[in-house]
């Protein structure tokens, strides 16, 4: 299966800008389906970005983050061609991870 994570990391001199888009339903547990049954909560709890074996960004998410979440941040350092490791874990224990080359 293709990765659920799409990342673009661009280095522009001093900093590396990272944009990530993840495919995930992010069900809040407050919404009912067409039959009136509550859709159980299912959302990403932690998303981590690692560069050079060091954490550069950690997101703790609640159910209020939109479906197919998007996040953007930047960190100092990074070089073109280097790898950035991204991984997430959701409230049901599912995980996914990928690596992206800095452009």
């Amino acid at each position: 299966m293709a990765s659920t994570i799409r990342v673009r990391a661009t280095n522009n001199g001093d900093t590396t800008e990272v944009q990530a888009l993840i495919q995930h339903p992010m069900d809040s547990g407050f919404i009912k389906d067409a039959q009136g049954q509550i859709i159980p909560a299912h959302f990403i709890q932690q998303l981590s970005f690692e560069y050079n074996g060091k954490s550069v960004f950690l997101a703790n998410w609640g159910a209020a983050v939109s479906k197919d979440p998007y996040v953007k941040f930047a960190f100092k350092g990074g070089a073109k061609g280097d790898e950035l490791k991204i991984s997430w874990v959701d409230n049901k224990g599912a995980t996914d991870s990928t690596t992206a080359k800095i452009q």
């Binding site: 900093t15 992010m26 809040s28 060091k54 954490s55 550069v56 960004f57 950690l58 997101a59 703790n60 998410w61 609640g62 159910a63 209020a64 983050v65 939109s66 979440p69 998007y70 996040v71 953007k72 941040f73 930047a74 960190f75 100092k76 350092g77």
Partner: peptide, 21 residues
Amino acid sequence: LAASYVIPAGTVPAVANRLKM
């Protein structure tokens, strides 16, 4: 609480995301 981000030293203190309201 919608989201909480840990910013290690060396990471620019700016975040963009999308939330439900």
